[in-house]
């Protein structure tokens, strides 16, 4: 259940952005979770609803962008979005690939309401 610690880190970051932008309220938080990030989106969403209540994000909506695994093959120069948990190139079966997306855990966007 490390989703709780991740949400704590996320809310801390949101709070800092809100302060830097003189915003009293955060209305929306957009994050991106890779399938191989090790984070369960549903648990994270539950944790967010529980922990957001204390700060500027208390009414914020959480939007989660799910990122599939994207491989770039060094051997045949192709790029593939794949469903299985494997780094083998589906075209040329090479192991010389690089995961370019699918392992990330990112805060992407915030919607803020500024103090007037």
């Amino acid at each position: 259940m490390h989703e709780y610690s991740i949400v704590t880190a996320l809310l801390e970051q949101c709070e800092q952005h809100a302060i830097a932008n003189q915003a009293g309220k955060i209305t929306k938080v957009v994050i991106k979770i890779g399938v191989l990030s090790g984070v369960e989106p549903a648990l994270l969403a539950t944790a967010f609803e529980t922990f957001k209540l204390e700060g500027r994000a208390r009414e914020a909506e959480l939007e989660i962008l799910h990122q599939e695994l994207v491989l770039e093959c060094q051997a045949c120069q192709s790029t593939h979005t794949i469903k299985e948990r494997s780094v083998i190139c589906p075209s040329c079966h090479s192991y010389e690939t690089r995961i370019i997306e699918g392992e990330e855990l990112l805060l992407m966007q915030l919607e803020l309401e500024t103090d007037e």
Partner: peptide, 27 residues
């Protein structure tokens, strides 16, 4: 860090902040 701020034309007091920030950055 402080992102690109775009004002929302419909609601003047709302803004969208584009950030690409690793959530476990501090760790």
């Amino acid at each position: 860090d402080h992102g690109t701020v775009r004002s929302n034309p419909q609601l003047n007091d709302k803004k969208t902040l584009s950030v690409i920030h690793k959530i476990l950055d501090k760790n």
